[in-house]
């Protein structure tokens, strides 16, 4: 499954990034990488970006980017 499918409030572990996702360099530089646990916090108003907690901080991503992040619960 992908981060897009994860329900708000659930914890999962990142498995890999799919395809030639341009964002992956940025995500890994911020420590969001395979093997790391994340918690999906919420979805922004008007079905906007999603907020996740990773390592010791909170970060937001667009839903279309969340499709590229493969996870396992």
């Amino acid at each position: 499954m992908t981060l897009y499918d994860l329900k708000d409030g659930k914890i999962a572990t990142i498995q890999s990034f799919s395809g030639e996702m341009e964002l992956q360099s940025r995500l890994v530089e911020m420590g969001i990488m395979p093997g790391i646990q994340i918690r999906r916090i919420k979805t922004a108003p008007m079905n906007g970006p999603i907020e996740i907690k990773v390592r010791d901080y909170h970060v937001s991503l667009r839903q279309e980017d969340a499709h590229y992040i493969l996870i396992s619960e």
Partner: peptide
């Protein structure tokens, strides 16, 4: 020029 991205920290 390159794809748009939105990776933004939500600081405490």
């Amino acid at each position: 020029k390159g794809k748009s991205s939105f990776v933004m920290e939500l600081p405490p």
